[in-house]
Amino acid sequence: MKPLNQCEQCTVHKESTFIKYGINMSRYDYLVALAGNPNTGKSTVFNNLTGLKQHTGNWPGKTVTRAEGAFSYRDKKFKIVDLPGTYSLLTMSTDEEIARDFLLFGKPDVTVVVVDATRIERNLNLVLQILEITDHVVICLNLIDEAKRHNLEIDVLQLSRDIGVPVVPTAARHKKGMETLMQSIYDVATGAYQCKPKRLKNISPKASRAIENLTKQLNDIFPHLHNARWIAMRLLEGDQRIINAIRSGELGTIHQEETTQEKLKSYGYETV
């Protein structure tokens, strides 16, 4: 008797679910990554956008299987990948590595960072790290209803101005703010909205110069690298993984030759 493959049973893996949305998974215009701290409601946002029924639950680290789906908004088709929740991108845990590698090498067109509106300061740590990797970010300020319940007043426009990317307040559990979120994703993807992300200040002039020089050098040999600055910073830290990637040439080839589909596959995502 052949035991059941749980994944094949899972709704996430059935392409038929997408047909409802008139989406053919193999053709899409933009790739969207969904990142954020654990337990901020990423899966709920994912479900709302795709119409899928990824299991949600109120505990951190619940999403262990990778989920991907698709939606179309106006004239464009978006493929969306739900990344594991992480507090940062700087340590070496598996979750963080998957999320970080995907942002670095998977080259999403837009990265949606889901932020817990009741814990903005802590969540911003991740946002700032992601902004070092990619400019094209939309912040989904989720759980806005809870923030209200907790008597928090949030100046969304100020926040957006300070960070330099769109900030969309949402209450995903109540399906609120999803339309605006899709519009922002659309705007950033098509270039209608130009992100001017906050870069880290407070770095010593010496370090800034070092980063600049390394970035320039990296761009020279890896012309397709779109986040050389981030790589340069890792080099300054002595990140062994990045050093190896440069030595082996992995850093250079990934961007030129692989298709997005192959990239997805190489980071553990099943593609349909």
């Binding site: 903005i120 300061e121 946002v127 200040k201 407070n202 770095i203 830290e237």
Partner: peptide, 30 residues
């Protein structure tokens, strides 16, 4: 460069991330 700047680059960068986050949050959350 690493030797020039010292081993504490990672720490200063973390600190700068934290302080930046605190500044931004302070301005827009009450």
């Amino acid at each position: 460069y690493r030797e020039e700047i010292g081993e504490n680059f990672y720490d200063t960068m973390l600190e700068s991330i934290y302080s930046e986050a605190a500044t931004i949050a302070k301005k827009s959350v009450r």
